[in-house]
Structures are given as structure tokens and as C-alpha cells.
């Protein structure tokens, strides 16, 4: 089943009198339960593509169908609904609400989805448990390590059971050991049947995915399956026991 269908998408930014072609002509399809890495050097248009895929932004030209729905023409409200229900974001800088504890951060998408308080708490707790933070639910972000913060962010992305998880350089702010643990977590999430798109500029991180799309200057340069996929040597397949950092 196709989750993402993009045809001839372009994104042009107007900077003063100059036009910046962040994306030129991108066409791609991503199916359910794929694990895709988007790779490219800095400034190649990765984040722009990811914002587009995540319905944070709309293309200047081209067609974008998400789960069969044409989102390229949607208004802000409809886009917000899609982001809320269908997409889970994981950012390089975690982007947690600093004044809220882990539980409330994870609850937040459910608040906007109109889920009742008790169900919200249950689901948020389950999500935190699944990333190994059952004992950190009432910690504020500044009381958590980088790895733990990213786990909270992943729990927040998972809690709405979205059709797509989008991660923009999720290991960019972590040391390599912690980064590896996060990649392990992504692998488990993938193996549970989720669809993941990972944006990175590191070859090594990209090789955790199954498919790599390389972009350069706003164009797809290469779209290929990973030959020697790096499968993290999980301590266990059970993500509930992924070691806390």
C-alpha cells in the first residue's frame, strides 16, 4: 500500500529578488512499512523535503498524495489534522516542551486529537514504557539525558499510532553510543510494522534503513535498496527492555 506518492514536486523560496530552488523536480513513492533514509549533503534540500512529507509545508509545484489524499492543496487546518493523526515527528533537537514533564509531552498530540484524559494518560504511559522510560514519566526535559529526551520524542511520535514516522537527523545531537541505541529503537519500531523516513547526512546512520534516497541540489540522485543493511545487534528483540540511557 502506498503511503506517499510525490510527483514532480518543487519548492522555491523567494529570498529578496532571488529564487532559491530548494527542491527542483522530485518524484517518489513510499509504501507502508518501508524504512527509508533520505541522504544528502548539507543544503541539498533534505529538510525541505521532510517538511513537505510531514505536511508542515506545501510544495510550490507538483502533486503530493498522502494515503491517497491530495495534500498539496490542503489548507492549514486540514494539514494540522493530518500531522496530528497520521504523522509522528522526531527532530534533531528533540523539540520537547521544556516546562512539561515527559508524560504531558507525550500526551500533547492526543489532547489535540480530542482523546479523553484517562485514555490519554494510559496511552502516553504505554508509549513511554515502550521506549523504556516507564520510570521517567514525571521528569521534565531538563532532568533527562539527550538519549532519554529523544526517547520521549519518539514516544510522542508513536502515541497517536501514525501511518508515518519522520525523523530529521534524530542522532545528530547524540553521542555515537546513544545514537546507536536510538537507531536500535527505530529498528524495533520498523519491525513492528511502522513506516519510517529518516533524514541524515551520515552514511552509517542511513545504512540502518532498508532503502536510501540520495538527493543533491534539490534533485533525487539515486534511489536504491541498502546492500548491506546495518541491523543493530539488539540485546533483545523486545523493545520494552531496551536499556535506559
Amino acid at each position: 500500500m502506498t503511503i506517499i506518492n510525490i510527483e514532480h514536486i518543487a519548492k522555491i523560496y523567494q529570498v529578496g529578488s532571488e529564487q532559491v530552488h530548494a527542491l527542483r523536480d522530485v518524484t517518489l513513492k513510499i509504501d507502508k512499512n518501508e524504512y527509508v533514509a533520505i541522504m544528502g549533503p548539507s543544503g541539498s534540500g533534505k529538510s525541505t523535503l521532510m517538511n513537505m512529507l510531514g505536511c508542515l509545508d506545501t510544495p510550490t509545484h507538483g502533486l503530493y498524495q498522502f494515503n491517497g489524499k491530495n495534500v498539496s492543496q490542503m489548507n492549514d487546518n486540514d494539514l494540522a489534522t493530518i500531522r496530528n493523526k497520521e504523522i509522528g515527528f522526531v527532530f534533531q533537537t528533540f523539540n520537547l516542551l521544556p516546562r512539561s514533564d515527559a508524560l504531558h509531552n507525550v500526551e500533547l498530540p492526543l489532547i489535540y486529537a480530542g482523546v479523553s484524559s484517562s485514555e490519554r494518560k494510559d496511552r502516553a504511559y504505554e508509549a513511554l514504557k515502550s521506549v523504556g522510560l516507564a520510570d521517567r514519566v514525571h521528569h521534565k526535559p531538563n532532568e533527562l539525558s539527550g538519549g532519554q529526551k529523544q526517547r520521549v520524542a519518539i514516544a510522542r511520535a508513536l502515541v497517536t499510532k501514525p501511518s508515518l514516522i519522520l525523523a530529521d537527523e534524530p542522532t545528530g545531537n547524540l553521542d555515537s553510543k546513544t545514537g546507536e541505541e536510538i537507531m536500535e529503537l527505530f529498528n524495533n519500531i520498523y519491525e513492528q510494522g511502522n513506516t519510517i523516513i529518516l533524514v541524515t547526512h551520515e552514511e552509517y546512520i542511513a545504512e540502518h534503513a532498508v532503502r536510501i534516497i540520495r538527493i543533491k541540489d534539490g534533485l533525487i540522485e539515486k534511489d536504491e535498496a541498502v546492500k548491506r543493511r546495518y541491523i543493530p545487534n539488539s540485546v533483545s528483540k523486545n523493545i520494552n527492555t531496551v536499556g535506559t540511557v
Binding site: A80, R83, N84, F89, N95, L96, P109, Y112, R156
Partner: peptide
Amino acid sequence: TKEIGIRKAIGAKRRT
């Protein structure tokens, strides 16, 4: 501003 961005990313509508 950043907080608003986060909230919007995870589904807060304009009216929210």
C-alpha cells in the same frame, strides 16, 4: 515561537 512550532507540528490548529 519555538513552542508554537512544536505544538503546530504535532497537530495544534490555528484556532487552538
